[in-house]
């Protein structure tokens, strides 16, 4: 296991684990915090993993995640709150 993979393992356990816990408790807005934590960590994980297995073509996945996460977030911020 090289350094990149080790880093991705750390991100997975120490990053996504807690993010999931936050994302599974409380009301919608506090869960959204967990999601907002999970997505960037996942982006970093995907990049580190792609570097670890030395596959630059995989990098399209973190790129798309980064872009679509914005869409997803906007959906929730728009619809999660109380209706006007």
């Amino acid at each position: 296991m090289n350094a990149w993979l080790a880093a991705s393992a750390v991100l997975l356990v120490l990053g996504l684990g807690p993010a999931l816990i936050i994302g599974a408790r409380g009301d919608g807005v506090s869960r959204l915090v967990g999601l907002e934590l999970a997505s960037p960590i996942a982006v970093f994980f995907l990049m580190a993993f792609a570097a670890g297995v030395d596959q630059p073509s995989y990098l399209i996945v973190p790129l798309v995640l980064a872009v679509l996460n914005v869409v997803g977030t906007l959906v929730f911020t728009r619809l999660l709150g109380p209706r006007p």
Binding site: L16, G23, L35, A38, S39, L65, F76, L80
Partner: peptide
């Protein structure tokens, strides 16, 4: 929201 987290996982 949690479903979205499942999607990321």
């Amino acid at each position: 929201v949690t479903l979205s987290v499942l999607g990321v996982s």
